[in-house]
Design a protein around this nucleic acid. Structure first.
Lengths: 191, 191
DNA sequence: CAGCGCACGTGGACGCTGTCCACTTTTGCT
DNA sequence: AGCAAAAGTGGACAGCGTCCACGTGCGCTG
């Protein structure tokens, strides 16, 4: 697993090659089949781990924003932190980001929280932040319903287009401008 | 090339395998090296063709909207047609869509128009539609600047998330609802 | 404490891939 | 008609995922 994550980090999903992972661990290729059904199973496990890492970064970002729950400014800050964490992950760990979104079904749609009500998926974090915005009176309850999807789409599209897509080679300053435009666009959509 | 496109259509970029393509053409694998430097060059060519196909579909969608240039309703309809064509391409040709956005640098950022001023890239079409919205008086000229990026991001993210991403398994009705929400969100961002 | 089962690792093989090399065939122009 | 360039051929190599049969060590149980 650790070796698989390392490979994914530096090369994306295609770089997760079974034989190389076993080589890093110092074991013969077939040994991997005692732990994973096949290469796809390994990749799926790595993908899930990468997705969890993204969720953890979002959690850390949210936790870093001071202010009580329900405070309008803090609520907005927390939503922003989520978006920032998302983009930062895509920028700093392009391999892991691509791997996280590379594969077969995982949970994220169901977005189950754990027993403490803490979100553990990207979508879960986003929903929590939007709910707080409603409680803070910043976002109309009527506009709340389903609005996580346009927002997620915008941030995800931004991450993909500027990270691995056609906008990959946009110079840094212009890219930051594009990011700012997108965040502003989202913020206006919440007003 | 045709064989490569066929492979990409039914399996995405990873399915573009050099030997299989030559097999389809009825030629020995090495023959491909007379036309492409290596497998990546083949994939890049296929990717460009797929991107062009997307642009063509957008053009066809725009051309299908009646109404003179500058008519507010028609201008809005053309922007919508662009978004619809984008999503439709991602939905109907997931392999080609993934391939189009799979690889190395291509042009799309520069978004050059051809000699007749006709856009030939997705971004070019989007820009043209937004310019028309300005000319039609629907979109404030001040808000126009750079707004193609948030919009592109939202539509692209939507296509990726619902097509190959975590929202892939959302049932059809719910997916259509998400699409509608996203288009509404964008439309409100233009008002 | 002896022995046994099972998880874990090994060794060798197969077919598939991309790519290199040297060689032959076909094509199009003069 | 003849020749150079373009296109295709044949054989080979390493690396990949995967299958099969075979060791090996640890922990539990009698």
């Amino acid at each position: 697993m650790a070796a698989g994550l390392e490979l994914a980090r530096s090369g994306g999903p295609d770089a997760v090659v079974l034989r190389e992972a076993t080589r890093m661990v110092g074991v013969v290729p077939n040994a991997a089949y005692r732990h994973f059904a096949d290469r796809d199973a390994l990749l799926a496990a790595v993908s899930s781990a990468a997705m969890r890492e993204l969720a953890d970064r979002m959690a850390a970002g949210v936790a870093g924003v001071p202010g009580a729950y329900g405070d309008p400014d803090a609520a907005g800050g927390r939503l922003g932190a989520i978006g920032e964490a998302y983009l930062e992950f895509a920028r700093d760990e392009p391999g892991l980001f691509a791997t996280a979104f590379s594969l077969p079904q995982h949970h994220a749609y169901g977005a189950a929280d754990d027993e403490t009500g803490q979100a553990r998926t990207p979508l879960g974090h986003l929903r929590a932040a939007l709910d707080e915005l409603v409680d803070a009176g910043v976002l109309d309850r009527q506009r709340r319903d389903g609005i996580e999807y346009p927002i997620w789409s915008a941030v995800h599209g931004l991450a993909v287009l500027t990270g691995q897509g056609p906008l990959r080679d946009v110079p840094g300053a212009a890219r930051r401008h594009i990011e700012e435009l997108t965040f502003t666009f989202i913020a206006e959509g919440l007003a």
